[in-house]
Simulated scan of single mutants.
Amino acid sequence: MTKTLAVANQKGGVAKTTTVASLGAAIADAGPRVLLVDLDPQGCLTFSLGHDPDKLPVSVHEVLLGEVEPNAVLVATSEGMTLLPANIDLAGAEAMLLMRAGREYALKRALDKLADQFDVVVIDCPPSLGVLTLNGLTAADEVIVPLQCETLAHRGVGQFLRTVADVQQITNPRLRLLGVLPTLFDSRTTHTRDVLFDVADRYDLPVLAPPIPRTVRFAEASASGASVMAARKNKGAEAYRQLAQALLTHWHTGNPLPTFTVEM
């Protein structure tokens, strides 16, 4: 049975795209067939995996509007994953979907057609709480919230949690929030621990382990058209590899994911 994971946070710059690309590559390296879905009109995931969004003949835009079948849009990546790509056209899809009944289910309908081709689907949601993010949450079994370990990280988390609760009540009662994933983590600073403690305490959320360290390797990987997993061994890749193995174990056994103990 296909497992679908959404990676979402309405705040930008929290390493959503990095998390999707790196987790996808690490899971694919372990054997499962992986589909990554780019739901961001900026097409950052598409670009970071070696495809020029401006040169795509079709994208997830046409899929959501029902103009083409999802199989016609899929592209391969250099690391064994398959990508449902995005470009700026997707910004128009959001407005067009608003006028349609059942608009929150457009992505789920498309992914249902691909269910026998993939074991794991990871969705890169845009930095907003609009209809595209609602599509991602409605199609997902579980959601992870990347959270940068910096000042004001918690801004908007409460609103996002209310959106998740609405989705659970209305369009997707099976959706489970796995927790927040600390990103841009620097264990040397007390500020990092303060931010994580504040979020965990304020919202009573699990803080997933391992935290993702701040490293220049992520920017270098995106520029090269591959995930950080393709680079030589580094601490960022190792953290995502551990998280991928924890997710695979969780899906196989039902055991909860490891958590990070936040102490003041």
Rank of each mutant, 00 (worst) to 15 (best):
V63R: 09
V228F: 03
L84C: 04
D186R: 07
A95D: 03
G13W: 03
L64Y: 14
S48C: 08
A86Y: 09
G179Q: 07
T133M: 03
T259E: 15
V207S: 08
L45Y: 06
R109N: 15
M96C: 02
L107Y: 08
L90K: 05
R103M: 08
L243F: 15
K233P: 04
V131Q: 06
E104Q: 08
F260N: 03
L132F: 03
R100N: 13
E238Y: 06
C125D: 02
L65Q: 12
G66M: 13
D198V: 05
L132N: 03
L196V: 15
A26S: 09
T17P: 02
L175M: 06
S224N: 07
E238T: 15
L247T: 12
T77N: 06
P85A: 09
P213E: 04
Y203W: 12
A25D: 07
V14F: 05
A246M: 05
L175D: 08
V195W: 06
T19Q: 00
A244M: 08
I123G: 02
L114Y: 12
T259C: 12
R162S: 13
A101F: 10
I144S: 00
D116I: 09
V216D: 10
T183K: 01
L177I: 15
V131L: 10
V20D: 01
V73K: 06
A110S: 14
V262I: 15
A15Q: 05
N172H: 06
T253W: 04
S128N: 06
L39C: 00
L247I: 10
M96Q: 15
P127L: 00
P85K: 04
A165Y: 02
T192E: 02
I88W: 08
A139S: 04
E69F: 09
F197N: 07
L56H: 13
V120E: 02
L74N: 11
L74Y: 10
T2W: 01
L175V: 12
E104F: 07
A95S: 08
A76I: 07
E104V: 02
P126I: 09
E67G: 14
I27G: 07
Y203A: 06
S227H: 01
E94S: 11
T171N: 04
A95I: 15
M99Y: 10
G156L: 02
L49W: 09
D201H: 14
R214P: 08
A30S: 13
L5W: 01
V68H: 13
L35R: 03
L196N: 03
V131T: 13
A8R: 00
P32A: 13
T249C: 01
L114G: 14
E263Y: 10
Q159H: 12
V121R: 01
I144L: 01
S59L: 07
G50S: 06
D194I: 06
S128A: 08
P70Y: 09
G179M: 08
P206M: 07
Q169G: 05
P32M: 11
L90Y: 12
R217D: 10
K235E: 13
F47M: 11
T46D: 04
P211G: 02
V207P: 03
L147V: 15
L49N: 07
T259Q: 14
Q245C: 03
P70V: 13
V120G: 00
P53I: 15
A28W: 01
A223C: 02
F260C: 05
R176A: 13
G31I: 10
I170M: 05
A21Y: 00
A165I: 02
T189A: 11
A239M: 05
